[in-house]
Amino acid sequence: MLFHIKNFTRNVAVALAMSATLSVAQADDHDGQKRTADNARWKSECSACHVAYPPGMLPAESWRAIMSGLDKHFGSDASLDAASASEITAFLEKNASAKKYNASGKPLLRITETRSFKSEHSEVSTSVWKNPKVKSPANCGACHTKAESGDFNEDDVKIPK
């Protein structure tokens, strides 16, 4: 019996220690966005032209708006067959951000206009954005060396010279 109590106490202590570490890691500035959700069709279709932006970077209403206008996708025709579009939309909705961004009443379509993007990039100078190697704030992989795998941890950022 005593053994069981000891064991239980130890387990609780371990669990508490782990959750403490976890909350520290989450509050840390270096946790970045790490993709956990995955879908083969989303990955292959979206990454054909750009980094497959993680679903958690926009709320569901934004993804729905983007997916319903793929024939005019930021100036390009990115239309998909109906089956692919509905599978990808469902995946994006399921893993979307719970935050609401539509202060203007319209869903935001650009990740770069979200508050989290702006605050995370507030230290980035205008010369970095103008660097031809960066070209556009949509080009995550220019600085986030692991963007392709959905890892946006600040420790892996390498700003091109």
């Binding site: 054909a48 032209c49 750009h50 100036g75 390009s76 556009s136 949509a138 080009n139």
Partner: peptide, 11 residues
């Protein structure tokens, strides 16, 4: 026969 680059995203 050479590699190309997306004109907007550089992909």
């Amino acid at each position: 026969a050479a590699q190309g680059k997306h004109s907007e995203t550089d992909k």
